[in-house]
């Protein structure tokens, strides 16, 4: 990269700010989560739990993971869908007619790589094929891992509730077919799909001055794929 470094904090301001807000909101989830959990415990005639017990419980684990999985699903689908599908006029989209993985020349791979291209973009073969899909593959892998984690923590939390209600625990496979698991999954997926679709189409007609997520304020509505 040719831009000059301006120090660790300014170079990474976006990632570090979101990382810090992530930690603060995770603490907020733990504090409000234990209060909500204890309100239910008391209503059920059970002992309240401490904050430490709550954050080491599968109830907390599944609540965190069910949201993580839907975010990674969203990015995974968006990264792959935008290769093949366009939204005319959107800053989030490629231009109509450019659908598909594009040529090696356009993508600067193999012999079309620049001097400062990543090594795996130049080398060819399976490494270039994998590297050329690495962002989507990582998001897809993180979706599968977080979804699996939400199912495992959800299973334990569900069985905790079952025992509290003097009902039989279910097997892991039984939980994968339970309404609780699918309700948690679908209620997160639906909101992600709506948000992504909204962003793609709202960005056609609306602007945010200075944001790379938006077209330049004066860009015509019909222009696709221009950011500024």
């Amino acid at each position: 990269m040719s831009e000059k470094s301006r120090g660790f904090l300014r170079d990474n301001a976006l990632s570090l700010t979101f990382g810090a807000v992530f930690l603060a909101t995770l603490v907020g989830q733990a504090l409000s989560g234990v209060a909500d959990f204890n309100a239910q415990q008391i209503a059920d005639g059970l002992e309240p739990v401490s904050l430490g017990e709550y954050v080491t419980s599968s109830s907390f684990g599944v609540d965190v993971m069910e949201n993580w999985q839907s975010e990674y699903l969203q990015f995974f689908l968006y990264i792959f869908a935008t290769v093949w599908l366009v939204q005319r006029g959107s800053s989030e989209s490629k231009k109509p007619g450019e659908e598909g993985p594009e040529s090696d020349k356009e993508q600067k791979v193999g012999r079309h790589a620049d001097e400062d291209s990543p090594a795996w973009a130049r080398i060819g073969g399976w490494r270039t094929a994998v590297y050329g899909r690495s962002l989507g593959l990582l998001m897809g892998a993180l979706f599968l891992l977080t979804w699996a984690a939400s199912s495992i923590a959800g299973w334990a939390a569900y069985n905790g509730d079952q025992l509290g209600n003097r009902e039989d625990p279910v097997s892991y496979l039984g939980y994968l077919g339970a309404a609780d698991f699918w309700n948690r999954s679908f209620q997160n997926w639906q909101s992600e799909m709506l948000a992504v679709g909204s962003m793609a189409v709202f960005a056609v007609y609306l602007r945010q001055r200075g944001s790379p997520e938006s077209k330049p304020v004066g860009a015509p509505h019909a222009v696709t794929g221009q950011t500024g």
Binding site: M1, S58, G61, V62, V64, M65, W68, L145, A149
Partner: peptide, 30 residues
């Protein structure tokens, strides 16, 4: 770019640790 790479790995490690932690809580049946 070295300090950017550190943030890349920090994110990846935090995510993997979070996933492993949630799986461990579930498997422990807590």
């Amino acid at each position: 770019m070295r300090n950017v790479r550190a943030v890349f790995w920090l994110y990846l490690v935090v995510i993997i640790v979070g996933i492993a932690y949630a799986i461990a809580l579930g498997l422990a049946g807590r």
